[in-house]
């Protein structure tokens, strides 16, 4: 890259490393005159940077990162906690639901049994009443039937007596009654 200048350039140079026009002679990197200055300012710069970093910047960033890590860990723990509570709540809800369902079933069964019992009682009672009424009715019918037979016999006896009288005979009451009796039996 850089070539050494001829000697007349060096002769005119403002310093050892710069020619009279302000151009570089050779590589400025190798100019010994400037190295002390560069090294001095480099050391100053590095010390300043080191102090800034070690006193302010790095502890601060470390604190920020640690705080964020802490926050994330806390948030995760809290989320875990909330999740567990949600699961718990769901379980409690399901439990309550199951309880309510079984309770409802029990109540329904009870009500059904009670109603069945009442129904059975009512049916029994009704059956008994029906039986009593039927017996009464049968009795009444039997009475009526008996009454009707007696009436028929009287009518028949009367009629027979009358018929015998009309035919010119004298009706023997006992004979007529016997005849009617024997007819009715037959």
């Amino acid at each position: 890259m850089a070539t050494e200048t001829d000697s007349h350039g060096a002769a005119e140079a403002a310093s050892v490393c710069v020619d009279s026009h302000g151009g570089a002679i050779g590589m400025p990197q190798l100019c010994g005159d400037w190295m002390g200055n560069q090294i001095f300012w480099l050391i100053v710069t590095l010390v300043v940077i080191f102090l800034i970093l070690s006193r302010v910047a790095l502890p601060r960033i470390a604190a920020i990162l640690a705080e964020r890590q802490g926050t994330i860990t806390n948030d995760l723990a809290e989320a875990e906690n909330l999740k567990a509570r949600a699961v718990e709540a769901e379980e409690a809800y399901n439990q309550a639901l199951a309880d309510a369902r079984s309770e409802a079933l029990r109540i329904a069964a009870e009500a059904k049994a009670e109603i069945q019992g009442e129904l059975n009682d009512a049916i029994e009672k009704a059956d008994a009443e029906i039986g009593a009424r039927a017996a009464e009715s049968e009795k009444a019918i039997a009475e009526i039937r008996a009454g009707a037979l007696e009436s028929i016999r009287e009518v028949a006896t009367d009629t027979a007596t009358e018929i015998v009288g009309a035919l010119g005979g004298t009706a023997d009451a006992d004979a007529v009654t016997g005849a009617v009796q024997s007819r009715m039996k037959g």
């Binding site: 890259m1 850089a2 490393c17 710069v18 302000g22 151009g23 570089a24 050779g26 590589m27 400025p28 990197q29 100019c31 400037w34 200055n37 560069q38």
Partner: peptide
């Protein structure tokens, strides 16, 4: 061309 002038102190 003055490629090295930029390095002058």
């Amino acid at each position: 061309f003055h490629p090295m002038d930029q390095f002058i102190v």
